[in-house]
Computed example of a mutant assay.
Amino acid sequence: MNDLPAHLLALPVPVLLIASVAIVSLLGLASEPVRRALILSPYQVRKNGHVHRLLTAGWVHADFSHLAFNMFSLYFFTEQTIRVLGVARYLALYVTAVIVGFIPTTLRHMRNPNYSSLGASGAVAAVMFSAVLLVPKLKLQLMFLPIPVPGIVFAVAYLAYSAWHSVAAGDDINHDAHFSGAIYGALLTYLLEPARVERTVKSFF
């Protein structure tokens, strides 16, 4: 048992991050009180100062498919992002993107006691677009497709799906956070690696 912390520290950061989101999300799916305690309620943020919900809502998901889709997407883009940014800057990107992704809808729904939101979508989108800007030739080998998919194609399709679902869905998933997260991820990546991002943008045109 004394060796457990060392074993945990030896695990890759992406595994620990994804595991933390998965474990908390499953607890939220199994326990409604846990879910209610963590989910983002802009009304509670305004009325009771529950600012922590801007962070904790990124660790709960609407259902297993929502969790799996976000975590698989995050996994596909994380390695390349860490390779360039390093662990500390990657974690800073992810955690701050969780918060920033929720800000627009929080401001919009602060007076609506019936509105709530959850999911790691903003942070996942931030990592996606960070990876695309850092590694423009990134390609993903998806098990259901016979050929590699360019990272930029996957990222844009992810946003397109979110745009459609944002209009059609009636769930608690914050699909709008994909866009705010993507923009934030791109801007922060530029601040961290301006020369590299400029080369990527030039290669697209």
Results as ranks from 00 to 15, higher is better:
L4C: 06
P5F: 15
A6W: 14
L8T: 03
A10P: 04
L11W: 14
P12G: 13
P14F: 04
L16D: 10
S20H: 11
S20E: 03
A22C: 09
I23T: 09
I23R: 06
V24S: 13
V24F: 09
V24P: 04
G28A: 08
G28S: 10
S31R: 11
V34P: 15
R36D: 13
A37K: 07
S41L: 02
P42N: 04
Y43A: 01
R46V: 02
K47V: 09
K47T: 10
N48G: 06
N48M: 02
H50W: 09
R53E: 11
A57N: 11
G58P: 02
V60C: 05
A62P: 01
H66G: 01
F69L: 11
F69Y: 10
F72N: 10
S73E: 06
T78D: 07
Q80S: 14
R83M: 09
R89S: 11
Y90Q: 01
L93F: 04
Y94N: 02
Y94V: 01
T96S: 15
A97R: 01
A97C: 05
A97K: 00
I99A: 13
V100S: 00
V100W: 02
G101K: 00
F102Q: 07
R108W: 13
M110S: 04
P113F: 12
S116K: 04
S116Y: 12
L118E: 15
G119A: 09
A123C: 03
A123F: 02
A126Y: 09
F129H: 01
S130I: 01
A131E: 06
V132R: 00
L134A: 07
V135H: 13
V135Y: 12
P136G: 11
P136A: 08
K137A: 11
L138S: 09
Q141F: 03
L145S: 12
I147T: 14
P148T: 14
P148K: 14
I152S: 07
I152L: 05
I152H: 05
A155H: 11
V156S: 07
L159K: 07
L159T: 01
Y161A: 10
S162T: 03
A163R: 05
W164F: 11
W164K: 05
V167L: 09
V167C: 02
G170N: 14
D171Y: 07
D172C: 03
H175N: 07
F179H: 05
I183G: 00
G185I: 01
A186H: 00
L191F: 14
L191G: 06
L191I: 04
L192W: 13
E193R: 14
P194W: 08
R196I: 05
E198D: 06
S203G: 13
F205S: 12
